[in-house]
Design a protein around this nucleic acid. Sequence first.
DNA 1: GGGTGTGGAAAT
DNA 2: ACTTATTTCCACACCC
Length: 946
Amino acid sequence: MDAKRRMGGPMLGGASQAKRGKPGTEWEDSPSQFEEELAQFDDVDMEMESGEGQAGELFSAALNPRWRRPAAPPLLPHTDTLVFQQIDLDYYLGSAVAGMPGQVEGKVPVIRMFGVTDSGNSVCCHVHGFAPYFYVPAPVDFTSSHLSEFQKELNSAVLKDMRSNKDNISVTVLAVDLTRKESMYGYHGNRLVDFLRITMAMPRLVAPAKRILEQGFKFDNFTTQGYPAYEANIDFEIRFMVDSGMVGCCWVELPKGKYSLREERSGTSDLCCPVDVGWTDLISHPAEGDWQRISPLRVLSFDIECAGRKGVFPEAEVDPVIQIASMVQCQGEKEPFVRTVFTLQSCASIVGSQILCFSQETMLLQSWAEFVRTVDPDIITGYNIQNFDLPYLLNRAATLKVNLFPYLGRVRGIKSVLKDSTFQSKQVGRRESKTVNMEGRVQFDLLQVLLRDYKLRSYTLNAVSFHFLQEQKEDVQHSIITDLQNGNDQTRRRLAVYCLKDAYLPLRLLQKLMCVINYMEMARVTGVPLTYLLSRGQQIKVVSQLLRQAMKQKLVMPVVKSDGGEDYVGATVIEPVKGYYSVPIATLDFSSLYPSIMMAHNLCYTSLLQKGQAEKLGLSADEFIKTPTGDLFVKASVRKGLLPEILENLLSARKRAKADLKMETDPFKKQVLDGRQLALKISANSVYGFTGAQVGKLPCLEISQSVTGFGRQMIEQTKQLVESQYTIANGYQADAKVIYGDTDSVMVKLGVTSVEEAMKLGTEAAQWVSSHFVMPIKLEFEKVYYPYLLINKKRYAGLYFSSSTQHHDKMDCKGIETVRRDNCPLVANLINTCLQKILIDRDPGDAVGHAKEVISDLLCNRIDISQLVITKELTRSAQEYTGKQAHVELAERTPSITTWNSSCPNLSCASLSPFWEKRRLSVCYSVSRPVRARACKTPGSLTAVY
DNA sequence: GGGTGTGGAAAT
DNA sequence: ACTTATTTCCACACCC
């Protein structure tokens, strides 16, 4: 159901009108532009290696030397230091390795880091001796003499709690230590108190131990009591990374003499170098200077084709996989060095690519798995591979009993299995998805990346490619794939070209959007593994940073039960003075408003004064502040907050990155720096959200409410300041008027007539207003709108002046139909043209005329049906769009007889209702369609009051 | 993360 | 029983 949509149908919004190449030269037999591109790649003799024409059954990696990684230089642990960039990190339970620290008996948790060296060799590093732990406050009168009894009792309580003991665990609690810590939640006088640090044998024992302690635990002569747990909900990987000072994708150094090389080399990936090291012996380098570089990662992009039955979506239990195209590229290089298609049955050659033909599907699958293991990619990409290609391949291999297929990771013996998972977050909503484990390889499904990071009208590969690359898929209708397969080696060749392109496009997109670089920078900045960025939400990133900062001050993070549901007051939107402004409107913005507020007022968990604390601690009035919500926080002079510190680090790092970016000349390094500054900005902004997430790891409404409270106060104050200062009475040309404002910005009519004056006065005003606020809060002049059409709250348009006083940079539209994806293209185009006529040509009469004309065209059937499709139904979710809706044929041009999904009888609705001065133009039209071919009733209403 | 307008569906 | 006009509600997609 959630499968890839493979039609390049005409209904794909804007992309549909795109024409590929020169129209006159588009003959079926002439090679496509893509084929020419393929042919121009280096090493055009690649097909010499191809198995074309042979049985193909005798597949051998040895015949394809280019697939392998470069030969690893000899490595001598006693004289060579091993340096690699860590790409992925997980842990497993295994037996202890002789000579390594940590528990010796039973199963021990081992951290496994996968990485790549500068020379492009892969490393699998097993880190030993690190065990999970958490804290509880020590009870009153507890001394170190009680430690062993506490440990003994807790150990037996956890053992008793286990329903089964498959692993035959004898020791659950490895250690209990007394340590001086302080809770990070609330200010309590900078006093370290006794905490018990409880170290468990395995990560999965932490939760039961926590529960037992919370519910009431008795030992020795102490009374039964509940112990609130601290840091018992931290992922083991994050725990390790925080404690070892390691961030995502950082460079790791294993000093000579401190690690050992494993004798057995992994058979599935014999170039992956397995080493063992003690967790305190490894050195992780902060991503600074030379350590910002990126290793030559291998990126594999692939796409599969299957021969479906007519009108039925392919099912792995029935329909065969007929082709798999793969492209492999090194990060940082321009083009893929492996371009290959595995086909079922013969296939004519394609210049610039290698074709391997198989007569049996089982061999095709098995060989492709072998290919993956040989290529040993660090990153696997493709389009919707997570929910379609990979599950399909695994299911198909299972159906055909290709038992050697599902070993796609870098660890020998670990089977790749399909799991259903429901990922839930505010960002993407609840989404059912599938996951396939591939240890050591990062799955970078481009569709998932796009869904996360980009708002698009359509998420089909075709539309996305057109949007970002001005390129489209090869023209093969989904419905004819089976026919092409059943044809001859020429028709299968056509399919192969199509398939190759579908593997190539994700690679190009990945490059164009700099996904790998940006995600790596995000991993480095926030300290989480790369994989977390795609599989987890925003919270874990803040937790990672919070823990790092807290550790330095001996602060520990409580585990809080999330209780949601109180009324929450957010930002203010100033009531707009709606209308058309034919004078320049200056826009002033608070830069990084929420982070600035938190820094300026030292808002943090550690500075929060809970009820009665101020009196209890005897704080004087100048030692704390009262926020607009009435909450109290101590000043930085009493205790500097963690969150302000994190924010300062992020924002100063961003400033540095931006400065470096200006100096840098190398385009590749520039990309890295730009990705870095972006990651830093996003991270700074997510700190506020973290404190306000009511179902989060550590919500603190006092903080988030105070932040928005300050924000509301500031926006009101700004309005008053500007309107009271810039007046005729004070010698200015006119009385300034704030006509609108949202959260962190105000739009001011300064009463000047030119853009230049507006910029000058706007800059002055911003500076003047800033002086009324606490550092680092700063109001900045942003831009001038001239003219400006203010339709409503969050809905406006204007010509945007920023870089020049003479020419506008763009026509800026916010919230209007032109930028919304839930309208059909016709509406967007109509409104856009009208706005142009109003704002650029300054001829509203023409705008009305145009609208009438379009409506008339609509009534008279002169408009392409693709323009009428409501995108809302189709873009509701990409899954629907890429799968279920695929069969909806919209090629039909006759609007009167169209079969349509009964759930969306209304095909189109155009509306235009801008306020222009006092005259109101409103155009409404709707076409209702019957469910099935019946007479079409077209109730249209057209009202123009002008 | 909350605030907002919008259109369609359900409720009235 | 059915249609129609109005209100209420909610999902959605946007703004910041």
